[in-house]
Write a protein that binds this DNA or RNA. Structure first.
Lengths: 204, 204
DNA sequence: ACCTGAACACCGTTCAAGT
DNA sequence: ACCTGAACACCGTTCAAGT
């Protein structure tokens, strides 16, 4: 019997796995500091790994971001379904959008990456983003059916807007809450307004 | 008398001036195609000019953009004053914002440059951007005084929003009009709504 | 005065060479 | 199998050398 460490089940694979984890850890730190556009060289340096090793594990920048962001996106999609069951439609929508902005804000460049990913069918994150946008679209559709939300906005519109508001926070550190405020103004705009002086349209 | 062309009033200066114009012409073309982030090397190549010459005339990218954009910005500020005189406050505001989106849309990266410039006091375009934002703020303020527009939004908020909507168009060629549509929804949100069933607050 | 392009320090990405 | 870093083609910016 040659030496074989108990944790190493398949030859050298454990080293590779450890490198993968180091790269992800470094990427979380560097992307957190520099945003989505962070230098991959910085990530490799931080992980104490050759640049080629990074590319071996994550052949493209998208592939690296995928691993960092997919959980977050899938979590947001799941939360949409959850809120759809537990709250009335309009409240579920507002609550989900609020959570989206919180979970997404402060991640510089994320808004742009999200929009780019939605427009690129070949991106590994495309499916996750689309699922998330459609989960939000479901909440919107139900809120519109309830008559409390204007019918002339669709899920794509709304998602683009929320991303645009997130983009504002990218521009200046001070502007982080400006987006949140504008969001409430916009949500007011989304609510249907009763014809002035007329009774509720629900009971003719 | 040595040869001196009639258009050349000051020795070799005319050559330099001609280069400046060539650079600006090339910059208009390249920035129009590639957006604000265009490669300065491409600009120099297109102008058939050494890279150092470009830097001699425009020591920074901002300085180059300044010359391309200042007229546009100052024009928008002037238009705000004009509309303020000729239309009622709320209509003037809506009209100006609409014009801003038209004049600014499709210029990839411009929204980001604008926000960056507003946050950088040392930028040569800072004053122009600020003047434009404040001209818009004046329209907003008067519209708010007239009671037709919500008082809880300020000029900085509104300007950030309009830029964010312009940013949407940067993301996908197809999304150009989405921003315009979202803008109308937002403007609806900005309008004060009468207390349901109550008379106009102007006459107590 | 003005112009030029090599030079420097970066970047993303690839790939021959090592273990 | 996996890792490494030199190599390539770019970038923005500077600056010694030319006219």
């Amino acid at each position: 019997m040659t030496a074989e460490s108990p944790t190493t089940t398949r030859g050298r694979r454990a080293d590779a796995e450890r490198n993968r984890e180091r790269i992800l850890e470094a990427a979380r730190a560097v992307v957190g500091e520099q945003g989505t556009q962070a230098s991959l060289r910085d990530v490799a340096r931080r992980a104490d790994v050759g640049l080629g090793t990074l590319y071996r594990h994550f052949p493209t920048r998208e592939a690296l971001l995928e691993t960092l962001l997919r959980e977050r996106f899938d979590g947001l999609a799941a939360r949409a379904a959850e809120l759809g069951r537990s709250l009335e439609p309009a409240a579920a929508l507002t609550e989900w959008l609020h959570g989206f902005i919180l979970s997404t804000g402060g991640y510089r460049g994320l808004a742009g990456s999200l929009m780019a990913t939605l427009n690129d069918e070949d991106s590994p994150l495309h499916a996750s983003c689309l699922a998330m946008r459609e989960a939000a679209g479901q909440l919107l559709g139900r809120a519109q059916e309830s008559g409390r939300i204007r019918p002339d906005v669709d899920g794509t519109d709304l998602f683009a807007l929320v991303n645009a508001l997130g983009w504002i926070a990218d521009q200046a550190p001070s502007a982080a809450d400006r987006g949140a405020h504008l969001f409430t103004v916009f949500m007011d705009g989304l609510k249907t307004r009763p014809a002035s002086g007329a009774p509720d349209p629900a009971g003719p």
